[in-house]
Amino acid sequence: MYQLLKQIVTTGIVTEPAPHADSALRQLEQRLSETILKHLGRALAIRHVDAGSCNGCELEIHATNSPYYNLEALGIKFVASPRHADLLLVTGPVSRNMEQALRRTYDATPEPKLVVAIGDCGCTGGVFGESYASCGRVANVIPVDVAVPGCPPPPTAIMQGILTAISARRS
């Protein structure tokens, strides 16, 4: 126990400042009202859906919870069910074998809801493209509010995408 406590104390707090929203990542105009956004911004629940990625993007989503990024400190956390979620974070080209599961997950998420597509594959279909087995980009299957390119996008870019999705319309 002494060693564990010592390790915590000597490590200290390594969390870095969060990135800012970037409206260039927007695919759709903000649909939610200022009032709702104000509430979401303080307690956003995310459901991650891997719709067919190579698992590279998942590594970076995991990293957003690491102490350097500490996404949860912003009041943003991952939840176990789409029914608890405000935002879907979708990776991969959508494989045809996941197409129905993704639609069902989207339908199970209560309104108001947001969708952020992660990675080059989520944005365009990436190296996998469209084929008998792949629907290509996420927007081909469900509406996407914000798309974050990168292969995979680093944790700050993913956080930026999430923060953009809950940022207010530019006045």
Binding site: G52, C54, G56, L59, S95, V127, S131
Partner: peptide, 28 residues
């Protein structure tokens, strides 16, 4: 569930071209 046609996608690619796809069979 993640079957996305990787093997079919390789067919007809030039050898240099396939490297990027090979590096994304399993990202980890």
């Amino acid at each position: 569930y993640k079957h996305k046609g990787v093997e079919k996608r390789f067919e007809g690619m030039a050898l240099e071209e396939g490297a990027r796809l090979a590096g994304r069979v399993s990202g980890d």
